[in-house]
Design a protein around this nucleic acid. Structure first.
Lengths: 239, 239
DNA sequence: GGAGCGGCCTGGTCTATACCAAGTACATGT
DNA sequence: ACATGTACTTGGTATAGACCAGGCCGCTCC
């Protein structure tokens, strides 16, 4: 929106980006502190921060609260048409996936869920919240609903691995159809806290509805991703 | 990442969000100026701006440079598996689509395009750049490459409508397969300027590769969307 | 060795002020 | 009617300062 050189903060941005590109700072490494970067260029701290925000929006760097700014690792590729779980596709890309179960409880079906699952209000459901990490960095949190009638005792299992394979191997429940809604969003309040990022950071909201071969909803899943952690790739025949 | 009330800017955010939710400001309408909002709450202008950035990241408001802050209209839904063009699906959702052709030129195939199209380096290609608007607001810019051998004279046509239907009706070229890559990104430099937004605003990058029934690449398209303008919805059978 | 305690450093928030460039609205001139 | 100019408003950029809370690390004490 502005000419190339006219803004200091874009100049500072380019400096830092160039130093990263040159390999002075490598993925996962910490940048010098804001006050040090400031001293180097003779600019105000606010200007340095503006440049850092720019790079953050581009996915080049990220921050750990009150610890520093770090160079972002490359994103992972996610293909919603392939029904492999997080654990396997992250590993297939040479990265180290982890899952933490934040909570798992039995709830009763409310109006919205009743509609999604075509089940009566009051039917028992499981509600699972998990946080998932790649190479030790929290990249998404998810909130999963599963019909308790389809997978009785599900939450007694260890859910830190692949939920997909638990449903398949233990309950014989497979997925035949997958509906995915995606939209850019802001990570606010709860999501931001769980991902340990600042409220307001851009993210990607991904809502998945999984159906079995009979067209029944097996699993309803809301995911909130850090915006710099993934690329979505879909390859489909046109209807 | 922080407790609820502890930050002024979140308080200001909530105030403004509440006034929007209450209908005091409607979609498309302008908010009071930053200096007016500041006077109302007894806070510094920087704090008001922080709150506005927050709401912008959430997609609630957007800005027009040096004109003011406006309430965002709802996003449109885009389904990459449905091969309808922008013009028709936007219209189907009760919105007013527009297209502006920024440039259309003949170029020669470079190494990258040669690989994508399976055509020799140096083969003629058309390069079309368009801006698309919804209800008068620029929401995306796109850069399209089409094999000139498949659609000779394409750029002589009016391309402010649906390119899809021109390819189909004039050249008999249909699309059978559609590969879509999506990732959150920052709108920088050129894209930001074309969309008249500030460099660094979050956006969604969408790369489409369209194939005909024989598996040849028909069209290669890079789109940059405002992050608050769309929701992507995919519904697919699992492979 | 391990737990606990400080203190330093970091980013996070906030104030106040200044100036600029581009948009807006309105009066003016043709 | 239409272009033109101008005064004013708006967001955009930048400075300099201040204080806070949480992360981090080393020291001390058990």
């Amino acid at each position: 929106m502005q000419q190339l050189d006219s803004h200091q903060y874009l100049g500072v941005r380019d400096d830092i980006a160039a130093r990263i590109a040159a390999g002075e700072f490598k993925p996962g490494e910490r940048l010098p502190s804001e006050r040090q970067l400031q001293a180097g260029g003779g600019v105000a701290r606010g200007t340095v921060r503006e440049a850092l925000f720019q790079l953050e929006a581009e996915g080049v760097i990220y921050r750990k609260d009150r610890s520093g700014w770090y160079v972002s690792p490359p994103p992972v590729v996610y293909d919603p048409t392939r029904w492999e779980g997080f654990m396997s596709y992250v590993e297939a890309q040479g990265r180290r996936p982890e899952t933490e179960t934040l909570s798992k409880v039995e709830i009763v079906c409310d109006g919205m869920l009743a509609q999604i699952f075509s089940r009566p209000v009051g039917a028992p459901m499981y509600w699972i919240r998990r946080r998932r990490l790649i190479d030790g960095r929290a990249v998404l949190i998810e909130s999963i609903i599963v019909d308790a009638a389809r997978a009785p005792g599900l939450i007694e299992h260890d859910l830190n691995g692949s939920l997909t394979s638990v449903l398949k191997t233990v309950y014989g429940v497979g997925v035949a159809r997958n509906k995915v809604d995606m939209r850019p969003c802001a990570l606010t309040r709860d999501e931001a806290e769980a991902l340990r990022v600042k409220s307001g950071l851009p993210g990607l909201s991904l809502v998945r509805t999984c159906y079995d071969a009979q067209g029944h909803v097996v699993e309803f899943d809301r995911e909130y991703w850090r915006h710099d952690a993934l690329t979505v790739s879909v390859d489909i025949r046109v209807r």
